[in-house]
Amino acid sequence: MTEVQRPPLTADERVQLIGWLDLQRSFVRMKCEGLSEEDAHRKVLDTSPLMTMAGLVAHLRWNEYSWFQLNLMGVPNTGQTPWTEGGHDDAEMFVDDIPLAQLLDDYDAECKRSNQTIAGLPLDAVEQGPYAAKGEAASLRYILCHMLEETARHLGHMDIIRELVDGKTGYTTMSEA
Protein backbone atom coordinates (compact mmCIF):
# COMPACT_ATOMS: atom_id res chain seq x y z
CA MET A 1 0.00 0.00 0.00
CA THR A 2 1.38 3.39 -1.02
CA GLU A 3 1.42 6.19 1.54
CA VAL A 4 1.32 9.76 0.28
CA GLN A 5 1.92 12.97 2.17
CA ARG A 6 -0.12 16.15 2.04
CA PRO A 7 1.88 19.38 2.23
CA PRO A 8 2.43 20.84 5.71
CA LEU A 9 -0.59 22.71 7.05
CA THR A 10 1.32 25.94 7.61
CA ALA A 11 3.78 25.94 4.71
CA ASP A 12 4.32 28.99 2.51
CA GLU A 13 2.50 29.46 -0.78
CA ARG A 14 5.17 27.87 -2.97
CA VAL A 15 5.46 24.76 -0.80
CA GLN A 16 1.67 24.45 -0.72
CA LEU A 17 1.20 24.83 -4.49
CA ILE A 18 3.97 22.42 -5.47
CA GLY A 19 3.10 20.05 -2.63
CA TRP A 20 -0.55 19.78 -3.64
CA LEU A 21 0.42 19.38 -7.30
CA ASP A 22 2.92 16.64 -6.42
CA LEU A 23 0.25 14.90 -4.35
CA GLN A 24 -2.17 14.91 -7.29
CA ARG A 25 0.61 13.72 -9.60
CA SER A 26 1.28 10.76 -7.30
CA PHE A 27 -2.35 9.67 -7.60
CA VAL A 28 -1.93 9.19 -11.37
CA ARG A 29 0.39 6.21 -10.91
CA MET A 30 -1.69 5.01 -7.96
CA LYS A 31 -4.85 4.97 -10.09
CA CYS A 32 -3.06 2.81 -12.67
CA GLU A 33 -1.63 0.25 -10.24
CA GLY A 34 -2.53 -3.31 -11.21
CA LEU A 35 -4.12 -2.48 -14.56
CA SER A 36 -3.52 -4.84 -17.44
CA GLU A 37 -2.44 -3.39 -20.78
CA GLU A 38 -5.87 -4.25 -22.15
CA ASP A 39 -7.63 -2.38 -19.34
CA ALA A 40 -5.23 0.58 -19.54
CA HIS A 41 -6.16 1.06 -23.19
CA ARG A 42 -9.84 0.07 -22.88
CA LYS A 43 -12.31 2.55 -24.32
CA VAL A 44 -15.16 2.62 -21.81
CA LEU A 45 -17.04 5.69 -23.06
CA ASP A 46 -18.45 5.48 -26.58
CA THR A 47 -18.74 9.26 -26.79
CA SER A 48 -15.12 9.79 -25.64
CA PRO A 49 -13.03 7.02 -27.18
CA LEU A 50 -9.72 8.73 -26.36
CA MET A 51 -10.61 8.78 -22.66
CA THR A 52 -8.59 5.75 -21.57
CA MET A 53 -6.27 5.44 -18.60
CA ALA A 54 -3.29 5.32 -20.95
CA GLY A 55 -4.59 8.26 -22.96
CA LEU A 56 -5.05 10.36 -19.84
CA VAL A 57 -1.51 9.60 -18.63
CA ALA A 58 -0.17 10.68 -22.03
CA HIS A 59 -2.32 13.83 -21.96
CA LEU A 60 -1.10 14.76 -18.49
CA ARG A 61 2.52 14.25 -19.57
CA TRP A 62 1.94 16.52 -22.54
CA ASN A 63 0.39 19.19 -20.30
CA GLU A 64 3.43 19.12 -18.03
CA TYR A 65 5.72 19.57 -21.03
CA SER A 66 3.55 22.15 -22.74
CA TRP A 67 3.03 24.41 -19.73
CA PHE A 68 6.45 24.24 -18.09
CA GLN A 69 8.77 23.84 -21.08
CA LEU A 70 7.08 25.34 -24.15
CA ASN A 71 5.03 28.06 -22.47
CA LEU A 72 6.89 29.01 -19.29
CA MET A 73 10.48 28.55 -20.43
CA GLY A 74 9.91 29.27 -24.11
CA VAL A 75 11.69 26.12 -25.28
CA PRO A 76 11.27 26.08 -29.06
CA ASN A 77 8.93 23.49 -30.49
CA THR A 78 11.13 21.40 -32.74
CA GLY A 79 8.48 18.90 -33.76
CA GLN A 80 7.50 17.42 -30.42
CA THR A 81 3.96 18.82 -30.68
CA PRO A 82 1.79 15.73 -31.25
CA TRP A 83 -0.64 17.44 -33.59
CA THR A 84 -0.22 19.44 -36.77
CA GLU A 85 -2.27 22.06 -38.56
CA GLY A 86 -5.65 20.47 -39.26
CA GLY A 87 -4.82 17.47 -37.04
CA HIS A 88 -6.71 16.17 -34.04
CA ASP A 89 -6.69 18.48 -30.98
CA ASP A 90 -6.02 15.55 -28.65
CA ALA A 91 -3.46 13.70 -30.78
CA GLU A 92 -1.26 13.10 -27.72
CA MET A 93 -3.93 10.68 -26.48
CA PHE A 94 -3.47 8.28 -29.42
CA VAL A 95 -1.34 5.79 -27.48
CA ASP A 96 -2.87 2.38 -28.21
CA ASP A 97 0.56 0.98 -29.09
CA ILE A 98 2.47 2.39 -26.08
CA PRO A 99 2.72 0.31 -22.88
CA LEU A 100 1.22 1.87 -19.76
CA ALA A 101 4.49 1.41 -17.82
CA GLN A 102 6.33 3.51 -20.40
CA LEU A 103 3.65 6.21 -20.31
CA LEU A 104 3.82 6.35 -16.51
CA ASP A 105 7.62 6.51 -16.52
CA ASP A 106 7.51 9.30 -19.11
CA TYR A 107 4.94 11.16 -17.01
CA ASP A 108 7.01 10.81 -13.82
CA ALA A 109 10.12 12.00 -15.65
CA GLU A 110 8.28 15.01 -17.07
CA CYS A 111 6.91 15.92 -13.62
CA LYS A 112 10.44 15.72 -12.22
CA ARG A 113 11.71 17.94 -15.04
CA SER A 114 8.89 20.41 -14.39
CA ASN A 115 9.88 20.66 -10.72
CA GLN A 116 13.55 21.09 -11.64
CA THR A 117 12.62 23.78 -14.16
CA ILE A 118 10.69 25.87 -11.65
CA ALA A 119 12.94 25.26 -8.62
CA GLY A 120 14.72 28.62 -8.88
CA LEU A 121 11.89 30.68 -10.35
CA PRO A 122 9.76 33.10 -8.33
CA LEU A 123 6.01 32.55 -8.43
CA ASP A 124 5.70 35.87 -10.28
CA ALA A 125 7.93 34.67 -13.16
CA VAL A 126 5.99 34.85 -16.44
CA GLU A 127 5.86 32.73 -19.55
CA GLN A 128 8.55 33.22 -22.17
CA GLY A 129 6.83 31.12 -24.85
CA PRO A 130 4.27 31.88 -27.55
CA TYR A 131 1.76 33.64 -25.29
CA ALA A 132 4.35 36.14 -24.10
CA ALA A 133 4.62 37.51 -27.65
CA LYS A 134 0.84 38.05 -27.64
CA GLY A 135 0.92 39.89 -24.30
CA GLU A 136 -0.99 37.04 -22.62
CA ALA A 137 1.79 35.54 -20.49
CA ALA A 138 0.73 33.75 -17.31
CA SER A 139 2.73 33.72 -14.09
CA LEU A 140 4.24 30.58 -12.61
CA ARG A 141 1.65 30.94 -9.82
CA TYR A 142 -1.15 30.78 -12.41
CA ILE A 143 0.47 27.80 -14.16
CA LEU A 144 0.79 25.88 -10.88
CA CYS A 145 -2.87 26.55 -10.05
CA HIS A 146 -3.90 25.51 -13.56
CA MET A 147 -1.82 22.33 -13.44
CA LEU A 148 -3.31 21.46 -10.06
CA GLU A 149 -6.80 21.88 -11.56
CA GLU A 150 -5.90 19.99 -14.76
CA THR A 151 -4.36 17.06 -12.91
CA ALA A 152 -7.16 16.81 -10.33
CA ARG A 153 -9.87 17.03 -13.02
CA HIS A 154 -8.33 14.19 -15.01
CA LEU A 155 -7.88 12.15 -11.84
CA GLY A 156 -11.66 12.34 -11.54
CA HIS A 157 -11.89 10.90 -15.03
CA MET A 158 -9.42 8.18 -14.00
CA ASP A 159 -11.59 7.38 -10.97
CA ILE A 160 -14.58 6.78 -13.21
CA ILE A 161 -12.66 4.79 -15.83
CA ARG A 162 -11.06 2.59 -13.17
CA GLU A 163 -14.43 1.85 -11.60
CA LEU A 164 -15.92 0.99 -15.00
CA VAL A 165 -12.93 -1.21 -15.93
CA ASP A 166 -12.56 -3.28 -12.75
CA GLY A 167 -14.69 -1.81 -9.98
CA LYS A 168 -11.76 -0.39 -7.98
CA THR A 169 -12.40 2.87 -6.18
CA GLY A 170 -10.66 5.11 -3.70
CA TYR A 171 -7.08 5.80 -2.74
CA THR A 172 -4.58 4.11 -0.51
CA THR A 173 -3.73 5.51 2.91
CA MET A 174 -2.99 9.21 3.07
CA SER A 175 -1.20 10.62 6.10
CA GLU A 176 -0.99 14.19 7.23
CA ALA A 177 2.43 15.80 7.11
Rank of each mutant, 00 (worst) to 15 (best):
V165S: 03
V15Q: 11
T10M: 05
L140Q: 12
K168Y: 04
P130T: 09
L155I: 09
D46M: 00
A101W: 00
R113M: 12
E37C: 10
Y142M: 10
I160K: 05
L121M: 15
G135T: 03
N77A: 06
G87R: 02
S139R: 13
Q5S: 14
V57K: 01
N77C: 08
G156T: 06
G34Q: 06
I160E: 03
H157G: 09
F94S: 05
S175A: 15
R61N: 08
A125L: 04
L164P: 02
L9E: 15
F68K: 04
L121K: 06
S26Q: 13
D124T: 13
P76D: 10
G79P: 02
G167V: 08
Q16R: 02
D108T: 05
H88F: 12
I161N: 08
E37T: 06
P99L: 00
D159P: 00
L72Y: 07
G74A: 08
G34I: 05
A138T: 04
G167Y: 09
T10P: 01
L103P: 05
E3Q: 14
L17V: 03
V165D: 12
E85Y: 08
E176G: 00
D22E: 14
G86I: 08
L35K: 04
Q80W: 09
I161Q: 01
G120R: 00
R25Q: 15
Q24Y: 15
N115S: 13
R113H: 15
E38Q: 12
E150A: 06
T172A: 09
N63H: 05
V57T: 09
G55C: 13
A54M: 11
A91I: 02
L70G: 07
R25W: 10
A152H: 06
F94P: 04
D124E: 15
Q69M: 10
D96N: 07
T47C: 13
L45P: 00
D96G: 07
P82S: 13
A138S: 11
S139F: 02
G74D: 09
N115T: 07
E136G: 01
A109K: 09
L103W: 07
W20N: 05
R113L: 15
V4C: 03
D22S: 14
T169H: 01
R14S: 13
L9A: 15
T78G: 02
W67L: 07
F27S: 06
R61P: 05
Q16N: 04
T2G: 03
Q24D: 14
I18C: 15
L123A: 09
V165R: 00
R141L: 07
A101L: 06
D12M: 04
R141G: 07
E110Y: 01
E110D: 13
A177K: 03
L35A: 07
L21G: 09
L123S: 02
D96E: 14
P8S: 10
L50W: 01
E176D: 08
D124N: 04
D97Q: 12
L9N: 12
Q128L: 11
P7D: 02
N77E: 15
A152Y: 08
K43E: 14
V165P: 01
E33I: 01
E127V: 05
A54S: 15
H157P: 06
C145D: 05
A177L: 13
L9R: 02
Q69C: 10
P130H: 03
W62A: 08
T169L: 10
Y131M: 13
E150S: 10
L100S: 06
Q116L: 12
Y171L: 14
T47K: 01
L140Y: 10
L148Y: 09
Q69R: 12
S48T: 00
L103R: 05
L103F: 11
K134E: 15
M53N: 11
L45Q: 03
T173F: 07
